[in-house]
């Protein structure tokens, strides 16, 4: 109940943030503007519109998660508003979870708005929305949940700017983890290979959530893959939230 109260408050606070609307505006411009590129694509307009729309949902969602998420806890500490909360009978982890859920709710709303806009636009322009497209949107949301958890963790540790830089770097690296295991054969059984394998399993593998190319090309994705990706997202996010709560428990405020 206390968690939900914090979440509700965070949601109200976040939707008042102007940056949210600025990013939503640019996402809408990207989605509607994609038709301009489609005109010169020799019949590939629907594919390009789907590609850009899904990328807009993902990229702008990640930007919202990073910009809002990294300042979430830091702002409370910096403005001393945290004192009014922690003096109440409330655990610190409840505060972290409440903050996280509030932002997750905002991101759900933003994702749904952007996805519905994109789907309506694709349909109006003569395209069709299949199951893979919906799966891609859901997986983008799970990717956003993971990035938000990372942002919240960084928010308990460092300033928003540094936190945003670190989360963004991890976001890019998270999509490139394949390079850690994609090594030539002469690296087999070497120390370097084992170390890189460990790095591969430690870092968040965000490419698991990326089925946007399949959605744009109207390719089927198996339910098994989808469920494993969701499973990965839920547990990785849970792990980050536990670490964030533990960090915040020990933090002097």
């Amino acid at each position: 109940m206390r968690i939900l109260a914090v979440a509700h408050n965070t949601f109200r606070e976040a939707i008042r943030d102007k940056i949210l609307y600025v990013l939503l505006f640019f996402a809408a411009v990207a989605i509607f503007g994609s038709k301009l590129l489609g005109w010169i694509s020799i019949g590939q307009d629907i594919k390009i519109i789907k590609d850009i729309s899904l990328a807009a949902v993902s990229v702008f969602g990640v930007l919202i998660a990073i910009f809002v998420g990294t300042s979430l806890i830091y702002k409370e500490v910096d403005k001393r508003t945290i004192y009014t909360i922690i003096c109440r009978p409330m655990h610190r982890f409840e505060f972290i979870l409440g903050k996280y859920l509030g932002l997750a709710y905002v991101l759900a709303l933003v994702t749904v708005v952007m996805a519905i806009t994109a789907m309506a636009y694709v349909t109006i322009l003569g395209g069709s929305i299949d199951r893979t497209f919906l799966m891609a949107v859901v997986l983008i949301y799970f990717e956003l949940l993971l990035v938000t958890a990372l942002a919240v963790l960084l928010s308990t540790l460092t300033s928003p700017i540094l936190g945003a830089i670190i989360v963004f770097s991890l976001y890019v690296t998270g999509h490139a983890t394949g390079i850690f295991v994609d090594l030539p054969a002469h690296f087999d059984d070497t120390f370097a290979k084992h170390m890189l394998e460990i790095v591969y399993y430690v870092l968040p593998n965000l490419s698991n959530f990326n089925i946007r190319a399949e959605a744009a090309n109207e390719l089927p994705v198996t339910g098994g893959y989808f469920l494993w990706a969701v499973f990965y997202g839920v547990f990785y996010t849970g792990m980050l939230l536990v670490v964030a709560s533990l960090t915040f428990e020990d933090k002097d405020v």
Binding site: I48, R212, A213
Partner: peptide, 25 residues
């Protein structure tokens, strides 16, 4: 293209679209 796939933060499909448009030009 392997490097591009890794370092475009999951946007390789968009990079392919943009290259396609460049190809038409």
């Amino acid at each position: 293209e392997k490097l591009m796939t890794h370092f475009t933060a999951g946007l390789s499909s968009i990079v392919a679209d943009l290259l396609w448009l460049r190809c038409i030009q």
